[in-house]
Amino acid sequence: MKLNEYLPVPAAIKDIVDETPDTKTFILQIKGRSNRVFKYKPGQFLMISLPGYGEAPFTFASSPSKDGKFQISVRRVGFLTNAMHKLKEKDIIGVRGPYGNTFPLDKMEKKDLLFIAGGCGIAPLRPLIQHVFSTRGGKNRKDYGKVEIIYGCRMPKDRFYKKEIKEWMDEPDTKVYLTVDEPDQTWDGACGVVCVMFPRIKLNPKTSMVFLCGPSVMIKSAIRDILKLGFREQNIYASLERYMKCGIGKCGHCYIKGKYVCTDGPNFSYTQMKKLGITS
């Protein structure tokens, strides 16, 4: 009989990083020989279980690594995520996946790339950015054109992956723009939503590819403004969030217009999003 898709396999917590006041990054590794879960691609997600607390989808927040370790960044918003924040190193959680589609990796080659993230929306884009920069070996970088990253947060302290983002700034042909909605004394950078940074974009809108993730209001307004700059619908991709319970196209929660965000997505081109009725 085929594998029971709903059965989580145990994974050990190898390390925990305090990312922001309400977010922790967990570095996980599957226990035993069940290495099925490692063959994931940027943009995919997995289901995380804590017995007694339930199950929820989380995006892979790091690109696949050889040692089988992978990361998820978890924002504390409710029952399960609160319980997860109480976990410690060496604790065991259940995982199953990977699920969902990836970004159009082939189509990206040689192209200039624009990444737009809001809040925890940086998590699904991080494996893709890491893939482009390919921190291990640096082989990939020359396969792609210029890179620009726009990352907006509510407050300076809400920014994820602070150290790594500094490293991104030093990559060749790369620009990183950071902005916050509510500045404090520590902040001397730009203020406002991600769209305030758009005038600084130097990439050729006709040929560049755009990847977005963030709250749905941000996605909507960013797409609206990015289209005005001349970027092409078919080159704009967004990673969508929907309530999900199964991850495998069965429970119906994520269903929109005949598509399952969990299996047909969660990454959609704007052309596809329009067909699904998700527009600005």
Binding site: Y6, P51, G52, Y243, K245, C251, G252, H253
Partner: peptide, 28 residues
């Protein structure tokens, strides 16, 4: 359509699935 949830008492319990659906606003 369904949902999945855990029901525990003490240290043990079950993971169950139960019918759910689009009339409920909490469904999405």
């Amino acid at each position: 359509c369904f949902s999945i949830a855990d029901r525990v008492s003490g240290d043990s319990g079950i993971r169950l699935r139960y019918c759910d659906g689009c009339p409920y606003s909490g469904f999405t």
